[in-house]
C-alpha cells in the first residue's frame, strides 16, 4: 500500500463570515500518485476544501496531514512555504500575472521556492531548461514564450499554468476547475497533457470539476456531497 498523500480526519471548516460550516468531512484519504477527480455542484465547497489542502486556510477542527506533515502544526509562514515547495495550484482562470512574460510566469514558482530549484539542481537541470522542456511539452509555441502572458488564448494560458505548477516536480497538483473555460478539444488536450506529466513524475493530482463526463480520465472520483456531511448543496 502506497503511503497517503492526503489524510484528513473530522475536518470541519467554517468561513468566518458564515454561520454554518461549509465542510464537515469525517475522513479523506488520497494515496501518493493517485489521480483524483473531486466532483460536486457549484457552491458545494470544492474550492474551500482545496484551500484547506493547500494550507491557505486551516480547518476549524480536525486534522489534515499532507505528505506526512500536519498542517495545523505549522504557522502561516511555514504553511505558505510548504505550499510553495510541495504543491502546484491551478485556478479556473487567470493563473498568470498578465504583466510578466510566459517564461517568467513559469519561473515564478521557482523564485518562491528554493526546494523546487534544489530538486531541479539534483537532476542537473536549470530552472530555465526545465521551463523550456515543460513549455515545449505542453505545446506552447516557442515564439510565445517571451510574450506577455495576457496575450495568450485561455487554453494556452491554462497550459502555461500547468507548466508553472509542475516546474520543480512538486508532490501534489491541485487544479480547481481548470478546464471549465475551455472548449472540448482544448479540454481533452489539456487533460491528457496534465495526466502525462503527473504520471511520469509520479505526482498526486486532485482535480476539481462539476463536469461528470471527465471521470474516465482519473483513477478515482470523489463526490464531495458524499463525503461532506453539512448537507449544503446548491
Amino acid at each position: 500500500m502506497a503511503e497517503l498523500c492526503i489524510a484528513g480526519q473530522q475536518i470541519e471548516f467554517c468561513w468566518p463570515s458564515q454561520s454554518q460550516p461549509t465542510l464537515r468531512i469525517p475522513e479523506l484519504s488520497i494515496r501518493t500518485g493517485e489521480r483524483i477527480l473531486l466532483r460536486g455542484p457549484s457552491g458545494s465547497g470544492k474550492s474551500t476544501l482545496l484551500s484547506l489542502l493547500a494550507g491557505v486556510n486551516q480547518p476549524t477542527s480536525g486534522t489534515l496531514t499532507i505528505l506526512g506533515t500536519e498542517l495545523h502544526r505549522l504557522n502561516q509562514r511555514r504553511r505558505d512555504k510548504f505550499r510553495a515547495d510541495h504543491i502546484g495550484y491551478i485556478f479556473q482562470q487567470f493563473n498568470l500575472l498578465p504583466y510578466l512574460s510566459v517564461y517568467r510566469n513559469v519561473l515564478l514558482a521557482c523564485d518562491f521556492s528554493a526546494a523546487r530549484k534544489q530538486k531541479l539542481a539534483a537532476e542537473n537541470l536549470s530552472p530555465e531548461a526545465e521551463c523550456e522542456r515543460l513549455l515545449t511539452h505542453l505545446n506552447i509555441p516557442k515564439e510565445l514564450w517571451r510574450r506577455q502572458a495576457a496575450t495568450l488564448s485561455v487554453g494556452q494560458q491554462q497550459r502555461v499554468a500547468v507548466a508553472r505548477a509542475l516546474i520543480g516536480k512538486p508532490e501534489l497538483i491541485i487544479a480547481d476547475e481548470p478546464t471549465s473555460a475551455l472548449d472540448t478539444d482544448a479540454r481533452d488536450n489539456f487533460l491528457s497533457l496534465l495526466q502525462d506529466e503527473c504520471q511520469s513524475a509520479n505526482i498526486t493530482l486532485v482535480f476539481v470539476t462539476h463536469d461528470a463526463t471527465l471521470s474516465h480520465h482519473f483513477d478515482r472520483t470523489i463526490e464531495l456531497t458524499e463525503i461532506n456531511q453539512t448537507g449544503v448543496s446548491a
Binding site: 491557505v56 502561516q76 509562514r77 485556478f91 498568470l96 500575472l97 514558482a109 508553472r164
Partner: peptide, 14 residues
C-alpha cells in the same frame, strides 16, 4: 487576482 496567484505559488500575506 494578482494577489491570489501570488498566494497560490507560495507568497505569504506578509
Amino acid at each position: 487576482r494578482e494577489m491570489a496567484v501570488l498566494r497560490a505559488i507560495g507568497a505569504g500575506p506578509k
